[in-house]
Design a binder for these strands. Sequence first.
DNA 1: TCCAATTTTGTAATAATTACAATTTTGTAA
DNA 2: TTACAAAATTGTAATTATTACAAAATTGGA
Lengths: 160, 160
Amino acid sequence: MDGNTDNKEKEIKALLKGKKIRPSIIRVKVLKYLLDNRNHPTADRLFSALENDIPTLSRTSIYNTLKTFLDEGVVSEITIEDGNSRYDAFTGKHGHFICEKCGGVSDFDVKCATCAPESLNGYKINQEHVYLRGLCPNCIKSGGDGNEKNFRKKRCKKSS
Amino acid sequence: MDGNTDNKEKEIKALLKGKKIRPSIIRVKVLKYLLDNRNHPTADRLFSALENDIPTLSRTSIYNTLKTFLDEGVVSEITIEDGNSRYDAFTGKHGHFICEKCGGVSDFDVKCATCAPESLNGYKINQEHVYLRGLCPNCIKSGGDGNEKNFRKKRCKKSS
DNA sequence: TCCAATTTTGTAATAATTACAATTTTGTAA
DNA sequence: TTACAAAATTGTAATTATTACAAAATTGGA
Ligand SMILES: [Mn+2]
Ligand SMILES: [Mn+2]
Ligand SMILES: [Zn+2]
Ligand SMILES: [Zn+2]
């Protein structure tokens, strides 16, 4: 609990207040986790990461918090793989890469300012997502030749 | 059952054989549906569309078929919204737009040949997806002002 | 302090997908 | 054609992420 941590918490609270979200303990901790860890966690990963810190935490609260954040545009939802939404508090435009072997999701800068063509001028575009799937350097090194069959996610059982 | 239909079926069977997939009745009908209807159906929509035609059809067979197609690259999976995978047999590079009001998914041509930057040169990229979310012209006309809160999919009950 | 509004929690319900074993269908060799 | 193994299909049950909902706890201001 040094001054630095204190400062960051103040910033987070201010950020939430700016969006008319009451900065409850859970909300602050969820947002802090997302800002500190750019690992695009699932709701369940968030729960696991915070349950020690907040012993009374429930999964529903994580979902509630994320829904609030989504509604106010504090986080965005990444549906890069089916069956597991991931969440991102970094709001600058960027794309997401998922490794089909280790499942890790990382950021990258998309080349183009927008991928939407003029043919969509009758549409209102609210969000733009660019997702890549493939193999990360680590997994290439450790044996993957990159020619495996399409990765099929197994439903990933909650870790314990 | 005109000659045209016959012809198309032959093409589909040839396509499957070329991928070493035995062209069973279900597989041919699923692929035919996907080629005839570019509506990016969910597994359940496919089931509903074909169950009259194949009275003994089971949902598991739809899933089995789609998994086979995915493994051989005959279709691609669209995870533009969480909780409902959609499938596309059109393999040319294109992006997908989902209307947050009516849920319709449509194709568009992405501007850029690739959105992947040079910074990913240590990665092997197998797939590239561009997803847009917003409002389609129809839904804009019929009242949506485009400033609604983020669309949150409700789990969409199987249409009876 | 007190109270209404908000947040959090626990539990049950929902629904997409998968696991799996039984049944049916199919290709082919005899 | 017949027989049989391999492949495909089916039905059912299990899994699991998410949502619904009502009760309990917390909170901010009067
Ligand atoms: Mn990100
Ligand atoms: Mn498409
Ligand atoms: Zn990896
Ligand atoms: Zn629409």
